[in-house]
Design a protein around this nucleic acid. Structure first.
Lengths: 210, 210
DNA sequence: AGCATTCTTGACCCTGGGGTCAACTTACGC
DNA sequence: GCGTAAGTTGACCCCAGGGTCAAGAATGCT
């Protein structure tokens, strides 16, 4: 790769990181190129697709943020507190960084690193929930799928309130967390959790896929 | 108004009602005209704006559905049951009828009838919540704004799952309702509910306004 | 039945996003 | 320092949706 191409790729990565974090993973690619001071043809030439760019720019960031949250959650003595920390922290990440919000609640099958990270995050979440369940801290029928769906709606809510009342999402989180304490269940749930394939479909549509 | 124009307006209203209920209030106007068997120019000529068409076609329907739900909710002996019925019923309406979903969680300032209906629905919801609160059936810090925000996210969730697992939203509703029972509150909420102006902003953005 | 008025039509414009490629420019090895 | 391979550019294409309007068609009054 020639030196100028290298430089342009770097400029594009920087611009993409900025814009993804400001406005989410759906910003127009032409706008990224504009901010990088480069023709959009160059962007297509160097990265080919949006997902390739996302994979290079966002994967590391997401891995850090989500990994840290999970690790910290598992370090709590009280499993219930760890779970509450994790749920609220992920929601907070979604609220403060649209890129993370889209990673958590989106669908990027061609972004390999990102997919790996999502898998790991999903596993961590399951462990955190399981631990809280075993400790009797949350109702036993709450699953990882339920949490992921909640994150999906939280991403949209957090973005909707961002300019108006940036903490408004916290109330919804509080209602969920307070309500999950084990004793509240009033009869069995009438619906089963979704299968992985269903989750994949649904998260795509939540994020606005065709 | 000439007889043919009258007929066309009727065909357009019928087509709009169908498409709004199938796909929500954002269907392309050209598609409505196509289904009505009429040029899209005619639609613009007869109705002018999307909101005018919505106001004529959807307002009555929404009033019926929401009014009935509220009325029935208030007829329960147990205020808490009435509240639970209302919340779940509105979510169900949203899940089964995208038009209602968009009415509840959207923003149509130029649609006068619709605005009036939304106001009345809002009032009814407040009464239902207040009644449940006075009966000690739900945590006292839950407000009408919280319920409306929940409806807003439910609209998106219900639409996302519609083709895959059409009842998946019920789990989230169950977590909320089970969790609102008065005893669960673990300390005061850290955030105040939104003001009407803020709600207006936020609902617009949730529904995907500019 | 004739004709003014009212309606309808569809071609047209605009916006904004994704994506391609021939022609130009630049870097770098020799 | 020069030729060639590598890289860049921006005009161009696509699509979908909103919206307008001159020309032509239909209605209904007299």
């Amino acid at each position: 790769m020639r030196a100028d191409a290298q430089r342009n790729a770097e400029k594009l990565r920087a611009a993409a990181a900025e814009l993804f974090q400001e406005r989410g993973l759906k910003v127009p690619l032409k706008e990224i190129a504009r901010r990088a001071g480069v023709s959009h043809g160059t962007l297509y030439n160097l990265f080919g697709t949006r997902e390739a760019l996302i994979d290079e720019v966002v994967a590391g960031l997401a891995a850090d943020r989500l990994g840290e949250a999970a690790e910290h959650a598992l370090s709590f003595e009280e499993a219930g507190e760890g779970f509450a920390y994790y749920a609220e922290r992920v929601c907070e990440l979604q609220a403060t960084d649209p890129a993370v919000a889209d990673v958590v609640s989106g669908r990027y099958p061609a972004a390999e690193c990102l997919m790996a990270i999502c898998g790991r995050a999903q596993d961590a979440a399951t462990r955190i929930i399981e631990r809280a369940r075993l400790a009797g801290a949350i109702r036993p029928d709450f699953t990882g799928e339920d949490l992921l769906l909640f994150f999906g709606t939280n991403a949209l809510l957090a973005r909707a309130v961002a300019d108006t009342a940036p903490d408004a999402w916290r109330r919804q989180v509080a209602f969920l967390l307070d309500g999950l304490s084990a004793e509240t269940s009033q009869g069995p749930l009438s619906v089963a959790p979704l299968t992985p394939q269903q989750m994949y479909d649904v998260m795509g549509r939540l994020a606005g896929a065709p």
